[in-house]
Design a binder for these strands. Structure first.
Lengths: 132, 132
DNA sequence: TATGGTGTATTAAGTAAGTAATACACTATA
DNA sequence: TATAGTGTATTACTTACTTAATACACCATA
């Protein structure tokens, strides 16, 4: 699995690991039942202590995205598609809610706000295309 | 000036102070040239060390929202309306950009996203109305 | 049941952030 | 120029977070 860690960004390693694995589960790069890379293997590859990886995995377990089988390994939880959709919705709902509140507090109209959103949405998509 | 501090939220006191004062400047609750509450007064009122307040004020100064006159006090910076608008734009731009990126990464379509936004926008406005 | 592969609990070291204590510096003005 | 009111620099305490070291616990299976 491809994982990019920036050791000097100040962002904790275990959070970088979490975010990237979560992302892969969300986008089906990692699927139901897939085994995650071994704690020790990943730790060795990233040149980091096993506990750091274990910690990342623990948080993912708390989010119900992975399950541990002690002595065996960690696996992507078998969740119903609807459940995954719900998790995504919550994530999205949360940030879009913040954006809406910020808009109102700053006196940005609904129409203006939507204009901004469209702009960023399409900018990001173009940017992704260019990178391929 | 009304300031509500939650001492147990885990959010640093100086950040709570910053956010609320910034908000008041943005929404004209505090206007150009107004003097901020004295470091010592506010510290005493919030039962907190003066340096904590000073720190909050320092960050607001770095944002160019307030100016210090040592030995005199702190005052809301006289900024041109256009400048204030720009600060607001940056704030808003930032969060709406995050929302757009999240949408794309989660596979939410532009139309869906805008639906969500409208919903939250109007929900929040209704909520505000009810509170008055 | 022994072994080698899994993950984990406990403990501790290092660092950064938040807050506070204290003494100090600047300004207006009586 | 003395004083009372402003903010500040320095220092240090406390706490939480991140990571690591070490020894341990669980499981499959030869």
């Amino acid at each position: 699995m491809l994982l990019e860690i920036d050791y000097h960004s100040g962002v904790p390693i275990y959070r970088q690991v979490m975010r990237q694995i979560r992302q892969q589960i969300m986008t089906d790069g990692l699927k139901e039942g897939d085994q995650l890379e071994t704690v020790r293997d990943l730790a060795a590859r990233l040149k980091v202590n096993p506990m750091t990886i274990s910690k990342a995995y623990s948080f993912l377990e708390a989010e119900n995205l992975v399950e541990r089988k002690r002595g065996v390994g960690l696996f992507v939880t078998k969740v119903k598609k609807s459940q995954l959709t719900q998790i995504k919705s919550e994530l999205f709902d949360n940030i879009i809610n913040k954006a809406a509140i910020t808009a109102i507090q700053l006196g940005v109209s609904e129409e203006q706000a939507i204009e901004f959103f469209k702009k960023h949405y399409n900018d990001y998509i173009s940017k992704q295309r260019r990178q391929k």
